[in-house]
Design a binder for these strands. Structure first.
Length: 643
DNA sequence: GTAGGGTTAG
């Protein structure tokens, strides 16, 4: 007893200095005994219920009262220091393990490795692993394999897996589960697919956790069909399975599929959770499905999820992108604690609506609050500047980003700045900026320059930008149309012909753009020349009527020039925006605003069409395209430069 | 009485 106390006091003197710094609240325990078992039981209970701080306090008390930790003590206490990510405490516990002669117990060693990996000390974990005398235990391998994968050292993990197989150590479901999350990047996908095969071969295909992991792997690599096939083959899906698929669709921009799956979930009476709602709200944001978004909000409120910060951010984003900036702002203002994502969502919302000054003010306020900006919030603020014509401010932000915050601007930042300079007519500067970029420019960067050439009618520079952009994105039809429009304005019929030929050669005929309109909680999707909608007949009738009324009021565009439709009168030339607007007029009451969402940029032809329609029909038309909102009322538009 | 695992937002 005295010997124990003496030994423990030595432990304590060093353990105390570290542990007291992390204790935030005191806990009282009644156990006063030198027998180890009751302490272990209490430690197990605390660790099981996630009370890690209390577990550490209890461990200290255990030493104070003279009880000696044994091999059963360490797994619990190591889990606590791992979960709290306390490497120093963990290292001290490692010393205790050695001193108390527990280092030959495989489960203590496994817990040690796990602790080191959670504290990002994989080299320490490897050292522990190397000292294991007979490395024939699956669990030891599993602990280190998943540790490597979670620390972005997938290849180390995979090598260990190979070693394991060479040595004839059996693997199990947990081994696969440790490896699959490392295959979520395209370069490792093939290994992930091998694991999928291995999984089926070993009869592990009914393990739900592995299936969930594999779905996530396919989703992250953009292989949605494979993910869906796997999903459909799971007989008893768990909530995580549904969430993996829903978030997957949302991340890959397949918003309609998200809502479809969500409906299916409701029908099967699977209770959604916060993760489900985040995915659904993101889909609502993309589709402008505000009514469904509102229903989700009610569910969040009634299910006591209102204080979930992820959901609040998703709601701000949803309302802002559905055009309801006021509602987004209320939620934002009422948030007691705002994260960087909350600020980014609201700043982006104002930027999209052309309210650049408010966006910039909010950004400055955010900085004053002490929040460290990242690359994404700079994209929001730069794009806000470009939409509102705040050239000087935008250039300052690019500089600030590099100098003050040491962030490396990516192509997404440069495309905003090229757009910014381009709109201001500083095309040469924009071109020089592209040439001086430290990253390789992508299609969006050259595309921004091409758009600026359209506004300022610079044919020669447009040709240069176009050649670059089609090299990078040969199938993006928007750029061909843009160049063709530039030639049209320059009366260059040869140029128009060249672009058309190029498009024909590359078989780029169909407009890939969609437009959506939300009506009575349902989102109606239209493609150019769509004849699939049940109300098609009425829609086209309405369009003809609109064309007639509009023509009576003259066909002049924003520059006062006659707009001539260059396309022969074929059905494909009926743009999706027009169809959505005709549908909206047919199905909404007079006085309601009309929000149409176009997945690509709104084209000049449609821009002037909506403008003219708004002159004859007393409604507010809002068209949201890939980057911003265009508000049309009484024949005027809030942003006239549609490119 | 002991160790290893899955899904979230801008």
């Amino acid at each position: 007893m005295t010997r124990h106390l003496h030994k423990n006091t030595r432990f304590l003197s060093r353990f105390n200095t570290n542990i007291t710094t992390i204790i935030t609240k005191s806990a009282s325990f009644t156990t006063i005994t030198t027998t180890t078992t009751p302490w272990n039981t209490q430690l197990r209970d605390l660790s099981k219920h996630g009370q890690y701080y209390n577990a550490l306090i209890l461990y200290r008390q255990m030493l104070q009262f003279g009880a000696t930790p044994n091999a059963f003590t360490f797994p619990f206490i190591l889990k606590s220091s791992a979960s709290l990510s306390l490497p120093t405490t963990g290292k001290q516990l490692h010393c205790h393990v050695i001193k108390l002669g527990c280092k030959s117990e495989p489960f203590v060693l496994t817990a040690l490795m796990c602790m080191y990996c959670k504290c990002k000390l994989t080299e320490h974990a490897q050292k522990v692993f190397d000292e294991i005398p007979h490395r024939n235990l699956t669990v030891c391998y599993n602990a280190l394999i998943s540790g490597y994968v979670q620390n972005d050292k997938f290849l180390n993990g995979f090598c260990l897996f190979s070693e394991m197989r060479l040595r004839g150590v059996e693997f199990n479901a947990v081994t696969i589960l440790g490896l699959v999350p490392g295959c979520t990047v395209p370069e490792h996908l093939w290994l992930g697919m091998c694991l999928h095969c291995l999984n089926v071969k070993c009869g592990l295909e009914n393990d739900l956790a592995i299936a969930n992991c594999l779905i996530t792997m396919y989703v992250r690599c953009g292989l949605m069909e494979l993910a869906r096939r796997l999903f459909d083959h799971i007989p008893e899906k768990g909530l995580i399975t549904w969430n993996a698929m829903i978030s997957g669709y949302a991340q890959n921009g397949l918003a309609a599929e998200v809502l479809e799956l969500y409906r299916e979930m409701e029908l099967l009476q699977v209770d959604p959770d916060a993760v489900t709602f985040v995915g659904v709200l993101s889909a609502c944001a993309n589709l402008g499905a505000q009514k469904i978004g509102f229903e989700v909000e009610q569910k969040i409120r009634s299910n006591c999820m209102w204080f979930n910060i992820f959901l609040k951010n998703a709601l701000i984003n949803m309302y802002a992108r559905c055009g309801n900036l006021a509602k987004a702002r209320i939620i934002f203002d009422e948030m007691p604690e705002k994260t960087l994502v909350s600020w980014t969502a609201i700043i982006g919302g104002y930027g999209m609506h052309g309210l650049g000054n408010t966006a910039v003010e909010l950004f400055d306020k955010m900085i004053k609050t002490g929040i460290q900006p990242d690359g994404t919030v700079f994209v929001s603020v730069l794009s806000a500047c470009s939409h509102a014509g705040l050239t000087k401010k935008g250039l300052n932000y690019l500089d600030l980003m590099k100098r003050e915050y040491g962030l490396k601007p990516g192509t997404e930042h440069y495309s905003c700045v090229v757009d910014l300079l381009g709109r201001a007519g500083r095309l040469e500067e924009a071109r020089k900026l592209i040439e001086s970029m430290e990253v390789e420019p992508d299609g969006a960067v050259w595309g921004a320059l091409l758009g600026a050439c359209k506004i300022h009618k610079k044919v020669e520079l447009a040709e240069l930008a176009f050649n670059k952009v089609v090299e990078l994105e040969p199938t993006n039809i928007g750029y061909y149309v843009l160049l063709s429009n530039i030639y049209t304005e320059a009366n260059d019929s040869e140029g128009i012909l060249r672009v058309r030929l190029m498009m024909r050669e590359r078989k780029l005929k169909k407009d890939p753009g969609y437009s959506y309109f939300e009506c009575k909680g349902k989102t109606h999707l239209f493609v150019a020349g769509d004849i699939g909608h049940p109300q098609t007949k009425d829609i086209y009738k309405m369009l003809n009527r609109l064309e007639d009324t509009v023509n009576e009021h003259g066909r002049a565009d924003k520059n006062g020039q006659e707009v001539i439709n260059q396309e022969p009168p074929n059905i494909m030339s009926v743009h999706s925006e027009r169809l959505a607007i005709a549908f909206a007029l047919l199905n909404t009451e007079i006085g309601t605003d009309i929000l149409v969402i176009k997945n690509l940029r709104i084209c000049g032809d449609c821009h002037s069409f909506v403008k003219r329609v708004s002159k004859t029909v007393d409604r507010l038309f809002v068209v949201r395209d890939a980057t911003r909102f265009h508000h049309f009322r009484n024949g005027t538009c809030s942003c006239n430069d549609y490119w």
